[in-house]
Computed example of a mutant assay.
Amino acid sequence: MLSADVDGTYLVRKYLVKQHADRNSDYAVRYQVDVAQLSSTLAGNARQLDDLQAFIDKVSQDKSLRVTGVTITGYASPDGPYAPNERLARKRATDFRNYVDSRYRLSASYPVTVSAVVDEWRAAVPAVEASSIPSKQEVLQILNGSDKATVKEMRLKRLPAAWNYMRQHILPPMRHVEMAFTYDKSSVVTERTPIPLPEVEPVIHATYILVDDQPDGLIIDMDEFDCTCTM
């Protein structure tokens, strides 16, 4: 409870209510093949960075928002050896963390977690299904199969037209960094409760008549009470 005050005949209480929003603001920037340095002009990066700037500005101005954590995940496409791809993905995540730290000092203000992911070939399925890639059904069969990643890549390269399409349209978006914020949003709720009024005792007005005056005392005759109750 923030406060409790009296307003006329009402007791006014104010409460701070917190609502948790999980990963409610996500941003993604793309990286070039075999590159771990951010380019603001690549693909839709400029718009994503502008949106990130807008969110940071909102957090700094809106006191009801409290960032509880930041997650930065670097990704690499599945083509090529796994170990170098994993290192590349981690370098991308670190590069982007350095970028946001240099601009917004996020690591100094919030808990920041950095991780790396090498996408599996199966992760390309939605993009392939929505595309006009040659030999689509054969490509999907390879992607959804149980072969090892190296075998899948070898089989895809045996489909030159499909492989060239994947290199140009499917694989590039998989080389990216995602950034997610978790934060609490609080709001003030006001409760107004009527204050009970105290009960008022009735006031009794009596009429007294002196009927006799004797040495040993007074005899008083009282007529009916005239009882008036006031509130």
Rank of each mutant, 00 (worst) to 15 (best):
L171C: 05
V211K: 14
V112Y: 11
A123R: 12
P198T: 10
I220F: 13
Y208N: 12
L218G: 13
S115T: 15
A89R: 07
F225I: 11
A124S: 06
S131T: 08
A130W: 02
F181H: 06
L143F: 04
V211I: 10
V188P: 04
A93S: 10
H169V: 02
W163R: 09
K136T: 03
V125H: 08
P111S: 09
L143N: 01
L210P: 03
D184G: 07
S107Q: 11
L143D: 04
P215N: 10
L106R: 12
I133H: 00
I219E: 09
A108Q: 13
D119M: 01
G217Y: 09
D184Q: 13
P215G: 08
V188Y: 05
D184M: 05
Y99Q: 00
M174C: 02
E199V: 11
R167M: 11
A124R: 02
A180Q: 14
T113G: 05
I220V: 15
S146G: 06
Y104M: 03
G217N: 08
V112P: 01
Y165D: 01
V139H: 10
E138G: 11
V189C: 04
P196C: 07
I219R: 14
Y208F: 10
Y99T: 03
V118M: 05
A130K: 14
T207Y: 07
K136F: 02
